[in-house]
Design a protein around this nucleic acid. Structure first.
Ligand code: ZN
Ligand code: ZN
Ligand code: ZN
Ligand code: ZN
Lengths: 127, 127
DNA sequence: TTACATAGTGTTATATTATAACAATTAAAA
DNA sequence: TTTTAATTGTTATAATATAACACTATGTAA
């Protein structure tokens, strides 16, 4: 439980109350009235928030979402479902999935310290 | 087995012989002597090659790699290991992994039509 | 062959995403 | 306190990706 700096808190609050992943420049636009005026200020806060696991980056969308598992202290094992029509993104919290992937060894016996998994399909509403 | 257009073939050959994932503008630089002069020409070929499964995009790196499983006719189930030091990327071909993920259902019973998984760690050489 | 549809190409301009470099300020730890 | 690390503010620029339009090649079907 880390205390966030001013910019980090402003940006986290915005992402956290967004029903969908937010892109960096959409964040910038939304926080300009709070005095955050430059892309770098946004990216710096995003980097830190990702590092401490408060938000995750959806790599296939260049967008950021608040962690929906209060347990993700650090972003090292993330899985998302992404609707290809409405772009709704949900963080998957399945202990069997995370167990499987955390223990996965490739054919050389190598284990990995981190992973990111993105599933694509149609959400309930869009089917 | 689709026959590639001229630009698609040039760009595929380049990526295929590269020992590491290539970024779009590195590709552009390398094919300029062959008459491909604009980013859009590169991106169009990349889009098509991804669509037909001859190459994959490593989302966390914005880079492209030739498919290493001759079986991936279409890119809908991809998994990679990525070394965080040397950036070496390998396509993982594990039937148990692909079986597990293809059949994965989330807690609402939803199955997905596509996924992309990226594992991170240190490769043999970098450990 | 001719007509038509589809896919691919070439080109210019521009949009979107992200980082470099430097100076100043604040918070924390020794 | 002093000194170290983290954060902020700012300008400029790099890297990644798409829009729009005109044209050309290729395949299919009458
Ligand atoms: Zn999380
Ligand atoms: Zn949907
Ligand atoms: Zn493949
Ligand atoms: Zn390595």
């Amino acid at each position: 439980m880390q205390t966030l700096s001013k910019n980090q808190q402003i940006i986290f609050d915005l992402i956290d109350k967004s029903p969908e992943p937010m892109k960096a420049y959409a964040i910038l636009f939304n926080v300009q009235k709070k005095g955050i005026k430059a892309p770098l200020q946004v990216y710096r806060a995003l980097d830190k928030l990702v590092e401490i696991g408060k938000i995750h980056k959806i790599e296939s969308r260049n967008a950021f979402i608040a962690c929906q598992n209060s347990s993700c202290q650090v972003s090292k094992a993330t899985a998302f479902s992404i609707c290809e029509i409405c772009e709704k993104v949900t963080e998957i919290s399945s202990s069997s999935l995370s167990k499987y992937l955390t223990n996965f060894k490739d054919k050389d016996g190598m284990k990995y310290s981190k992973y990111n998994l993105e599933f694509f399909g149609l959400c309930k509403k869009c089917r």
